[in-house]
């Protein structure tokens, strides 16, 4: 089996020869090919080369366009700076001072520089390794993107203030995520990752009221394009699982703070669970034999379709031998 076949065997209820490996690699991937992270987030050729080298050197089964959370923010008109070592940042989010949607541009994946660069990454993956590896596109979820535009603390207080404008902001973020996903699917992505990191920090009630309906609309739109959906929410999502289980996901990334058996009980037998070794203590700082044991334990706790992953991004500086142990076939 190649990586593409292994990944889809897992998602489609088949029997992969061993679990597919889908770690989140950004800073580490740039380091691996001797490039600055700033180049990784701003030049799709660097991102593609880094992913392909990681896939080939480590036996990873999916290549990914994930790089940083500020592609769409730049499209909305946010001033995004690229730093060689720390990557992309937006020190003055466009709505930080006022929740006024008139301050935003409407992003276009075909013309926004940073969004187009990600689409080009997917297109290059498709040309180079289509059918050999799964290709993961990436969009920001509605809450995460709204937080990038408004600042997370302001947005969280807006949710309580219940202004109509905050609903409109979340809606436009969902619309843009759908547009961006469509451009990546058309370029060759077989799966779209949705990063909605901020959601773990809100209550189940707020999630159900403000976020779930929009995530559901995004998931259904991506499925209608013919692609699969993976949801990644950093942090502890145990309290959100009843809602997440109703989203209709194909893959759920699970951070290390969450018990995989609890997730399995909540989401049922079909969703592939990706995770959830602690990226710092369990991968970066652990010994290779302990890493192998931890990955095997995750598979056991997942008790069903399973993808090898850490709880979140593999940290820069993780020793190569640790990642080799992490990716060694189970």
């Amino acid at each position: 089996m190649n990586g593409y076949e292994r990944y889809f065997a897992t998602l489609d209820g088949g029997t992969p020869d061993h679990p597919a490996r889908t770690p989140i690699l950004m800073r580490w991937a740039a380091e691996h090919i001797g490039q600055a992270y700033g180049a990784f987030v701003s030049d799709h050729r660097v991102l593609v080369e880094a992913n392909l080298r990681c896939a080939r050197d480590l036996g990873i089964d999916q290549v990914s366009a994930i790089s940083d959370p500020l592609r769409e923010t730049a499209g909305f008109g946010g001033k995004v700076a690229i730093h060689p070592q720390t990557g992309a940042s937006c020190e003055e989010p466009p709505l930080a001072a006022a929740l006024d949607l008139a301050l935003l541009q409407r992003p276009d994946p075909a013309s926004s520089l940073r969004m187009r660069d990600r689409v080009e990454a997917v297109r290059l993956f498709k040309a180079k390794v289509g059918g050999e590896y799964s290709i993961l596109g990436w969009v920001e979820g509605p809450l995460a993107e709204a937080a990038d535009l408004r600042r997370m603390d302001n947005l969280f207080m807006d949710l309580f203030d219940g202004d109509e404008e905050v609903a409109a902001l979340l809606d436009v973020c969902t619309d843009v995520a759908i547009d961006f996903a469509r451009a990546q699917v058309e370029a060759g992505a077989d799966t779209i990752g949705v990063g909605d990191a901020a959601a773990s920090q809100i209550s189940a009630d707020l999630y159900e009221e403000w976020v779930w309906p929009r995530e559901k609309r995004l998931v259904e739109a991506i499925h209608a394009m013919g692609a699969r959906v993976k949801l990644h929410i950093c942090g502890n999502i145990t309290h959100l699982l009843p809602g997440i289980a109703r989203l209709g996901l194909d893959v759920l990334d699970v951070d290390h703070l969450v018990d995989l058996a609890t997730v399995r009980a909540a989401v049922g037998p079909k969703v592939a669970l990706a995770g959830n070794v602690d990226p710092v203590k369990g991968v970066m700082q652990a010994r290779p034999d302990a890493i192998r044991t931890a990955v095997a334990a995750c598979r056991e706790r997942a008790a069903g379709p399973f993808l090898v992953n850490a709880g979140c991004e593999i940290p820069a500086g993780t020793p190569l031998e640790n990642l080799r142990a992490f990716c060694q076939p189970l």
Binding site: D153, F156, M157, F160, Q201, I202, S203, L206, N236
Partner: peptide, 14 residues
């Protein structure tokens, strides 16, 4: 105790 989350902390602090 995970009975409230960051938004509730923020509005209390505000």
């Amino acid at each position: 105790r995970n009975e409230v989350f960051v938004p509730e902390m923020l509005i209390a602090a505000r």
